[in-house]
Amino acid sequence: MSAEVEIPAKVSDYHVLPLRLPSHPAVHFEAMHYIYFKLHTPSVPTPESSRSLFLVNIPIDSTAIHLKHLFSKQIGLPAGRIVDVIFNETPTKKKTPPASAVLGKASKKRKRGSEEEAVLEVESTLPSTWDREIYTSGSSATIVFVDKASLDAAVKATRAFSTKGNKVTWGDGIANKTAKLGSHRYLAHASLTFPPRDSLLSAVNNYMTIFNANQDIAAKALARKRSMPDEDGFVTVTRGGRNAAARMEDAQESLERQKERQKGLNDFYRFQGREARKEKALELVKRFEEDKEKVKQMKARRKSFKA
């Protein structure tokens, strides 16, 4: 469709890259897809951001292979200029690396925060149940190039490519390099849902080993803090000591228990009883008013009460 409709080359500060979508026996119309791209300018720049390209509205079945193929083979950049493709599920969410990168690998990702928190996160270890990611419609991706020069060249080439009116077909020629979609994908999913016993157990064991090690490290850090006064001479109270710090929930629980205990004492003084009665009367009046209001509303809704 829409070959006739005029498409702006630039929307806000994004360039538009039209793509032709491959045909399928079930559909009888041609379809165009529009990727928007610009230089990556995150609010918090990273070392990589200066040589990255930001893409929005990528096709749902995008893979690194697809995008590399698009820029090298289809648009005509020299191969090997792209070092990484990072998909963001939605533009606002924090990035998750592609599934292939984490499969079966357990790695300590990072140690966040200072010693006071000592929170440790362990990377996901359970096998994925899909052979390939599919992104929600309108997702984005960041393409990291080897250097700024390659990035600029890519932008230039792509702009020139799209203004000339050239159109390439998405995923043309790489069908064999990516996992197949359709029944193949879903049957694979059905079997991947049940990972082999051994790989599952080893993944769990690996994870738990690291997790426990981390716990140990954390416990040690806490113990150190407990035993060492800080520069002001105070000793921090932390979990795990002889007098363990309470959990939040426990505190809440005991608060509730306290309330429970005081419950029976509400009519200890005469004025309490009096007030309770007064409150009850007020409550009744309020309810009566509410009901009256409700009847009014009901009446308004059905105009007349007649069935």
């Binding site: 469709m1 979508l21 399928h24 079930a26 165009m32 897809h33 096709p59 979609l181 359709g182 994908r185």
Partner: peptide, 20 residues
């Protein structure tokens, strides 16, 4: 982009989809 999205749906479904 209804046509593109339909195309994507069909592409995702592959051999499962016979007709739109």
């Amino acid at each position: 982009n209804t046509h593109a999205m339909l195309n994507e749906m069909v592409r995702l479904g592959g051999d499962l989809v016979t007709r739109v």
